[in-house]
């Protein structure tokens, strides 16, 4: 028996039940659906022609925030991983301390610390503080991914690199890290998806990204059902697209690096 059609059918039935439940629930509490008002928040018709609506502006902000923090997080994560694997006692101590400190704080508290404490001290605006917070938080997780990826390369590769006279830095650069990419890429993407999702938290310090925009619209219009469903759908589309892209990338990579 082919289980795929069965599971798809089951999925559709469950989803239909959930939607029915929501619609009936909304109807019984007398909710006034106003879906027709949503499109203007995606693409707005103004005097100057068609402009991106508030949700799209927020989406652009979210993407910008995510890309910047992700790049910073990858760089920072690599540094932390290399420090932890180094033979420098101080390097290992600093990296481990950083790791344990960040990993054991709630993301929200970290954001408050960076925005309300480091912000005034170092003069960070709310957008920079958000980028720093997300980058620092995810760099810790990414450093573990890098560490595992580096350790997955066999010790013989180090010995071979050293035996042709390479320094530690050269061995990392030309021999070890290129081979780690294969191990690192899948979990790193998972982390990118995770980062998109955790970027929503910066709405608490009123950075004008997707979640904040959604909340602002609701405070004007009271359409909480429609707006949150739309916002959730936008996040879902974004993360799913990323996942699909990476699956393709991975397949290409596994062929190229063999």
């Amino acid at each position: 028996m082919n289980s795929r059609p069965v599971s798809i059918l089951l999925y559709l039935v469950v989803m239909w039940l959930i939607v029915q439940l929501a619609v009936n629930g909304a109807a019984s509490m007398g909710y006034n659906w106003q879906w027709y008002r949503i499109p203007q928040y995606i693409l707005a018709q103004t005097d100057n022609g068609i402009q991106p609506g508030e949700l799209v502006t927020g989406l652009v902000r979210t993407v910008d925030l995510t890309v910047r923090s992700f790049l910073l997080a990858v760089a920072l994560g690599l540094v932390v991983a290399l420090l932890r694997l180094s033979s420098l006692v101080i390097g290992v101590a600093v990296a481990t301390g950083f790791l344990e400190f960040i990993r054991n704080l709630p993301l929200l508290v970290l954001l408050y610390l960076i925005y309300y404490v480091c912000g005034p001290v170092f003069g960070l605006d709310r957008y920079t503080a958000s980028i720093v917070c997300l980058a620092v938080y995810h760099s810790v997780l990414i450093s573990e991914i890098f560490r595992a990826g580096i350790l997955a390369v066999s010790a013989g590769q180090w010995e071979a690199a050293q035996s042709i006279g390479m320094s530690r830095a050269q061995s990392y650069c030309y021999i070890i890290l290129p081979q780690s990419i294969r191990f690192v890429l899948p979990p790193l993407t998972g982390e990118a998806v995770h980062l998109i999702k955790s970027s929503a938290i910066v709405s608490v310090i009123a950075v004008a990204e997707l979640t904040t925009m959604g909340r602002n619209i609701i405070s004007d219009t009271f359409m909480s059902f429609e707006v949150w469903l739309t916002v959730a759908a936008i996040y879902l589309v974004m993360t799913l697209m990323l996942s699909i892209f990476v699956t393709r990338l991975e397949r290409k990579f596994s062929v190229a690096s063999r």
Binding site: S154, G156, Q157, E159, A160, A161, S163, I164, G165, M166, Q170, Y174, I175, P178, Q179, S257, R258
Partner: peptide, 27 residues
């Protein structure tokens, strides 16, 4: 000092030519 290992330890992400040239070019 050149070294040849029991398990070869070639660099799998490089071609044969890449394996040979990387030391000369980088070191």
């Amino acid at each position: 000092v050149g070294m040849v290992f029991q398990q070869f330890n070639l660099f799998p992400h490089l071609t044969v030519l890449g394996n040979l040239t990387i030391g000369m070019v980088r070191v």
